[in-house]
Computed example of a mutant assay.
Amino acid sequence: MMKSTSDRYGAVAVTLHWLSAFGILALLATGFRAADAPDPAALLRLHVPLGIAVLALTVFRVVWWLALDRKPAPIANTLAGQERLARGVHLAFYIVLFGMFGSGIALMAMSGAGAVLFGGGPLPDFSAYGPRAPHGIGAMLLIALLIAHVAAALYHALIRRDAIFRRMWYGKGKRAD
Rank of each mutant, 00 (worst) to 15 (best):
P74G: 05
R161V: 02
R33Y: 14
G104H: 02
A86C: 03
G31N: 01
D7W: 13
L85P: 06
L55R: 00
G99P: 01
M1K: 12
A35W: 11
L44E: 03
G136L: 14
P124L: 00
A109R: 04
A152K: 08
G31I: 02
L117V: 12
A80H: 02
R166H: 01
R61C: 05
R175H: 10
F126P: 03
F98C: 11
Y129F: 15
S111Q: 10
V63H: 08
M168W: 02
L79T: 11
V62F: 05
I24S: 01
L142M: 15
H135W: 10
H17A: 01
A109D: 03
L91D: 13
H156D: 04
P49G: 14
S103H: 00
A67G: 15
I24G: 03
T58E: 09
R167M: 03
S20C: 12
A53P: 08
D36L: 09
F22W: 13
G10E: 12
L25N: 13
R160I: 07
Y9P: 06
M1L: 10
A42I: 04
F118P: 13
A157K: 11
G51R: 08
G119E: 08
A56W: 03
D7F: 10
G112S: 04
L123C: 07
V116M: 08
A26D: 05
L19D: 09
F98D: 09
F98I: 01
L68N: 11
G99K: 03
A128F: 05
F98Y: 05
L68Q: 13
G114P: 05
I159S: 11
V14T: 12
M110N: 06
L158S: 07
G104E: 03
R175T: 14
A176D: 08
A86P: 02
R167P: 00
H135M: 10
A76D: 02
H149K: 13
E83G: 10
A86W: 04
A41Y: 04
M110C: 07
V48G: 11
G171S: 01
A29Q: 06
W64S: 01
F93H: 15
R8T: 04
F93L: 09
F165T: 14
H90P: 12
F165E: 00
A139M: 14
R70L: 09
A73G: 06
L79H: 14
I137K: 04
S20L: 12
A133K: 13
A11Q: 08
G31F: 00
R45F: 03
Y170K: 04
A42C: 08
A152P: 04
G171F: 00
A163I: 00
M108Y: 07
A73H: 05
A86V: 04
A139E: 15
P74L: 10
D125S: 07
Y155L: 02
A148K: 09
G130Y: 11
A86K: 08
Y155C: 04
M108N: 15
I75L: 15
I143T: 15
V150P: 12
Y155V: 11
L55Y: 03
H135E: 12
R33C: 11
A41W: 05
L16F: 07
L158K: 14
P131V: 00
I159C: 06
K174A: 07
M2L: 14
H47S: 02
A151I: 06
D162S: 05
W64I: 04
W169T: 09
K3L: 02
